[in-house]
Nucleic acid binder design. Sequence first.
DNA 1: TGAGTTAGAATGGCACCACCCGTC
DNA 2: GACGGGTGGTGCCATTCTAACTCA
Lengths: 208, 208, 208, 208
Amino acid sequence: MIITILSFKGGVGKTTTAVHLAESLSKRRSRKVVLGDGDLNRTALNWFQRGQSHGIDVGFTVFDGDDDPPHEYTDLVIDTPARPGDDEVLRLAEFSDCLVIPTNPAPGAIEASIGTLSRLRSLDDSRYRVLLTLVPPKPSRRGIQARDVLKQASIPTFKGMVQRRDAFMDAELEGVTVGMLKGKAALSASESYATVGQELWKLTKERR
Amino acid sequence: MIITILSFKGGVGKTTTAVHLAESLSKRRSRKVVLGDGDLNRTALNWFQRGQSHGIDVGFTVFDGDDDPPHEYTDLVIDTPARPGDDEVLRLAEFSDCLVIPTNPAPGAIEASIGTLSRLRSLDDSRYRVLLTLVPPKPSRRGIQARDVLKQASIPTFKGMVQRRDAFMDAELEGVTVGMLKGKAALSASESYATVGQELWKLTKERR
Amino acid sequence: MIITILSFKGGVGKTTTAVHLAESLSKRRSRKVVLGDGDLNRTALNWFQRGQSHGIDVGFTVFDGDDDPPHEYTDLVIDTPARPGDDEVLRLAEFSDCLVIPTNPAPGAIEASIGTLSRLRSLDDSRYRVLLTLVPPKPSRRGIQARDVLKQASIPTFKGMVQRRDAFMDAELEGVTVGMLKGKAALSASESYATVGQELWKLTKERR
Amino acid sequence: MIITILSFKGGVGKTTTAVHLAESLSKRRSRKVVLGDGDLNRTALNWFQRGQSHGIDVGFTVFDGDDDPPHEYTDLVIDTPARPGDDEVLRLAEFSDCLVIPTNPAPGAIEASIGTLSRLRSLDDSRYRVLLTLVPPKPSRRGIQARDVLKQASIPTFKGMVQRRDAFMDAELEGVTVGMLKGKAALSASESYATVGQELWKLTKERR
DNA sequence: TGAGTTAGAATGGCACCACCCGTC
DNA sequence: GACGGGTGGTGCCATTCTAACTCA
């Protein structure tokens, strides 16, 4: 299975999403997951470089997107560079079982996603999902409002949203996934991606 | 005076910084400020397109970075596309009175800034400043820690930091600057950029 | 008042003693204390260099022992290089109100102190004191045994002893004194030097 | 084979390391080990002077570093005076099969080692190893943290670390090595140096 | 419109428990 | 083998700040 993560704006948690969806997949029975880091900053590679020095195993393999992938895997998660062109998006959609498009609730990011995705009407709705990330905690309704705006533009979204949490920064700093950190906040953060991973799993069921 | 806003990662508040520093400059006596939107998403243009329909004047002019600037101005603020190359940074520094480099406290953004800036040792320290943006509110020490890390890498930073606040999203949504919104939060947000603007003004004093 | 810290072996807490006795003195009313770092590694200077970057004031001034001391002070604490010769010890004793000789309970350190000090019979007993440092915690009797051995050689010691504690490493790492750290351990560590400082104050009473 | 023990700070267990590595070597088949005491306090000579009166044989010979070594030996361990200069270190490295640099986890000692060793970039990495000594027992993470710091400065360390134990003082007091004492603590202490001795043996394999 | 209230996030302080060392 | 002490980890509470809601 091939999952491609892309976004039309930077800083929306693209690499965080790639890493944690890869982890979510790798926890399923007899799945060998590899994560291809195609980001220009090589954020995912840097992420786990910090952890490898502490001898930590995350359950999946990260490789440079410019290199060939490892020989054997069941699932490939691709972290793409930001701002792909329209044809590039269509090509990636053709190539992948599902496009995951993380977007934070900022007007600019939402607008960029809507602008591009409503232009690409040839995209199959079951082939992609927008994931709301960096959502402010609960008294704020930014997340729900953003999802409403996307729904009104008939753009499919994940039901699950990922809250904005310092634990994600901690995880990146330590070179691990949030699930490997201790504490209530980390657990909650981990669960949010687990939920999204489950949605993704169901969505791609018939294509496996 | 020419102020160039650049960043090595997306989603760190580059356009927000450009807009509010332009506003801060435009409030000084007999200054005519123009903001050149060079961002690939044209975020700044979209921002004020929303406001213009409400007949709002923000005190400065925004123009497409691919076009020529308006004929008369005293200060030019440039919002650049993300991820400039090393030579591009040096060229912009040569061209500008000051580079402003917004960075959020996430490890990836800090690392990208340090990586590039410590490589460019030919950069004059008085020619650029890193601005910490999207800083979590006070119980969190992420902002101070990030500034310490930058200081340790002997990278000059603005003393003032910009907190993460929903008011900035509101402002973008309304097509105005935060200073035009009501409420305590908006006032505080506006003041943080005013402080940075003052630092910037002092910094570029001798070059005016 | 001039207090000179010397030792006949390295790694017995000489700089730690100098720093915390300087602090103890500086807490007395209207005392201006300066600490001269004569150690070859400049440990005391490095110590507070770490703290100064955080804008911390320790209540006394540290200066390079090769330079002239600051103009105005009431008390001068000198951290000397290790292993002074016999004549050097006598010269320092002449020059100072009190020699403080930190020694840990290891056989080699005790032996070195006894060897040198019992050779220097011309030393006035009120002019110097051995301070037992890095003493293992209470079930261990190393500290008391060491003090007995010194007493048997009729070498004057401080009644107070300084326990071995991780808090001292923490303080050095943070560039502060233990009294500035939080926690029960740090408080206890701070009190032990306060006690020694009080003994030292009484001892040098008639010479002030 | 020539093993040189040196350190940039005093009181880090230099002589203890020299003695126990000499013992470790002397236990190998058909090895005649001599230990040259170059320390200014002649700690090693004093150490075994205490034991010789009890008619104890430690398996290797200790001689004064200012004298000529005994005529026949296969391995020479040298206990040097503290704080060698840069050129002295290079000369000793040239002269020896391996430099062993004991360092305790105190900030000052670690810093001194890093400062000197990272300056001497001409040193062959296979020619020296830092040995962490006097490491606090297990709940404390000082040892591991210190090793991480050294690793980050790309300074090679022994994998084995030597814990801080009263048994080492007992051994020095009795004039024997820890392996000759009874009790669980002494056994554990002995094993830690045996492990380091094994690492050292493998490291110098090709040079023998 | 403005003040007070509420929920949630994040840090700091605190007590409690586990592990290990050294003595009896 | 039992006990006292140091160190680190965990869980709990208090504090501070944000954003939304409510009431006058």
